[in-house]
Design a protein around this nucleic acid. Structure first.
Lengths: 139, 139
DNA sequence: TTCCTTATTGCAACTTCTTACAATAGTAGA
DNA sequence: TCTACTATTGTAAGAAGTTGCAATAAGGAA
């Protein structure tokens, strides 16, 4: 926790209290660069905040995702990973080598509107993951 | 298990052996009409085939989904539900009342092509779920 | 600063899901 | 029908994720 990023304003902006547990979790996600499973978050964040417990990690990840500070992404078979919500994007996953690429959310906006007008729902979020073969695994 | 639907041909077509466990699971999913969680499948299928075990249910659901006899859908927070793969579709879920509607897969084909040409991936499946407010919960 | 309210956390017990490996039972071929 | 092969299942143990409730501590008000 030697870095100077301050997550407090973002938490407060969502009406959430600022706690060392939440800071540790956000810090870990920030420095991981990518997607982490709840277990990975738990293990890493415990290095910085040893009294952290599993239920807290799961609840925090859910809460922060609900408040849009984090994005939750599904990566096959019900597994869920989290990352800081910088830009909204989705994932293509190669089910042979596991390689992942990110794709922009923008093309999905059209679908949103389409489904909104056909169903009357007002959509605000989505879990979208595509599976297939990456270029390297196609041969 | 008084119904006469025979799942054997579909299993054999996928190179899978026909076992009473698989029949019981398919039977349960057929008669449920909708989406069931692994636990629900386990509990109901056990009525018909009491020696059925949990690991078998989880493995069977995964296997059948991989062979496209079942569809796996995500319904919030990493929860996964299964249903018979009749028509390919996706779900809009109201996060207030939990109500669910199904939407056709066709509009997503365009996206498939778009992402395929921008990434070089060859896509074959997806997990897609949209969240929002249903018409009743918008007021 | 101190008090008060209540969001957040930890604890303990529990449920759900997974894994490795040995036992069982489909199914193709003789 | 019988045999052999091996996919599938059960067992047992463990890992991952959840829940209810009591204890704690963040943040607003005095």
């Amino acid at each position: 926790m030697t870095c100077s990023i301050n997550y407090a304003p973002r938490l407060r902006a969502q009406g959430l209290r600022v706690t060392p547990q939440r800071n540790a979790i956000l810090h870990v996600l920030h420095h991981s660069g990518g997607h982490l499973s709840p277990t990975q978050v738990y293990e890493r964040a415990r290095q910085e905040f040893p009294s952290l417990t599993e239920p807290t990690v799961y609840r925090t990840l859910e809460d922060l995702a609900e408040k849009k500070l984090l994005l939750a992404a599904h990566v096959g078979n019900g597994k869920i990973v989290y990352e800081l919500a910088e830009t909204q994007h989705h994932h293509l996953i190669c089910h042979k080598c596991g390689n992942t690429v990110e794709v922009d959310h923008a093309p999905l906006e059209l679908l949103y509107h389409q489904f909104e007008s056909s169903t009357g729902y007002k959509l605000d979020s989505s879990h979208v993951t595509f599976f297939g073969l990456c270029p390297d695994c196609q041969s």
